[in-house]
Design a protein around this nucleic acid. Structure first.
Lengths: 226, 226
DNA sequence: AAATATATGTTGGAAATCCAACGTGAGAGG
DNA sequence: CCTCTCACGTTGGATTTCCAACATATATTT
């Protein structure tokens, strides 16, 4: 447990708190520790929506499956990321999504009702926690706004390039790594993996970008004619 | 102003507060009143992101336009709905979206920084307001989850039917009205208006649904064979 | 290293979308 | 009543996606 405090202190939920404060809060919140192996669910669609999770190690994805079994990736979770708070804070009974570990992972599970209803003098950091959750939800809203922007592009190529340009901007460099493999990226952008792969091939051949695995580099566009 | 208190008491932001409490809060928050005519922007992409709006009358849409001028509708705002809090609470400098009035509308504008930083003894309802905003953001996250679910469907027909089935469920009846016209629905679902119209025609002819304007009725599917 | 599994790239025909153009009908205003 | 406008429906051909199948590359295991 101790080894994961560096992750928790960087976690959005606990910003502004010291290690001892966090340790005390985890007690208040009834935190439970869980190990999940690669490919196994942390939550399944239809599960009660009262728990909030924090990824301590490994990685996970929030996914939805439609009637035909098509997978849609809603968000990609890395160590320090939390998940599920939107559903419990909105008062939902059942989860409308699943959370799947994509690697062997450790997660921390908190009871959201304790967070929201805990009387504030029990723990000095209660209101700070609330504000951190609020800011986290606002950021997740932003992330959805971006995802919708990618998905609203007409062609596979435009969805891909809009995403990659955003990644370059966010990471502050034309060279960057993305947090997922090709299939996951395709399911996140809402495109066919094979079509996306074909577009990547074209973009590479035209010199617009280079990529290998999760590494990408966007190249400046050559001006022709002018 | 007085005439809009019924709207404000039903507004998610002010749940649990009486009319007098709200009146006092509006003072604290430096509320400003604004009239916007049909088609005019309330906010434009790039504007400073510190204001939160509440629709008092009329209606508005949160929209994004891409490089080619394609419009994407992120959410549809009706009286009582608030907008912009995700961007200010996430600490964004500039708005990444525009908010456009679709009818002559009245809106109330609040300064979000006052909401978040206002010292809590100034106003008893400060922490309640924070919790209301938190719940509102969680609900907006849910709304995005749903929108993404519609947009993730492969065909225009599936996007449309997934949306309509959700509406019927939310409104608790197979007969319902949607809060927008065909073009807006198409821009919300991320489909071509003409293709959507064609699908609606097919669905009508097959007896699967009836519609006129914003009114819809979903009909049970006939079982063949068995 | 060999064998296996998994990830990624490539291809071609069927299906769906995209787009522009046009037809129709309801409502607004003169 | 007429005209104008605007929302909605319809159509057809160019473009793009979709899907299954296969080829290649990379990682993992034995």
């Amino acid at each position: 447990m101790e080894r994961y405090f560096p992750v928790l202190t960087r976690c959005a939920l606990f910003q502004g708190m010291g290690q001892e404060d966090i340790k005390a809060m985890l007690g208040c919140l009834g935190a439970r520790f869980a190990s999940v192996s690669k490919g196994a669910p942390v939550f399944l669609e239809g599960d009660p929506a009262q728990l909030v999770g924090i990824v301590l190690s490994g990685g996970a994805q929030v996914v939805q499956e439609d009637y035909y079994g098509n997978r849609s990736v809603l968000s990609i979770l890395q160590p320090g990321d939390s998940f599920g708070e939107a559903f419990s804070c909105a008062g939902l009974e059942e989860l409308p999504v699943s959370v799947i570990a994509v690697q062997d992972s450790q997660v921390l599970l908190l009871d959201c009702r304790r967070i929201l209803t805990m009387c504030s003098h029990t723990c000095h950091f209660h209101s700070l926690l609330i504000e951190n959750i609020l800011q986290g939800l606002a950021r997740k809203n932003l992330a959805f706004t971006q995802k919708v922007r990618y998905m609203s592009q007409k062609t596979t190529r435009d969805k891909l390039m809009t995403y990659l340009l955003d990644q370059a901007k966010q990471q502050g460099s034309a060279e960057f790594v993305i947090p997922c493999d090709r299939q996951t990226l395709a399911d996140y952008l809402g495109v066919e993996r094979s079509a996306m792969s074909a577009e990547l091939g074209k973009l590479k051949r035209s010199g617009r970008l280079d990529t290998k695995g999760s590494w990408f580099r966007l190249n400046p566009v050559e001006q022709h004619g002018l």
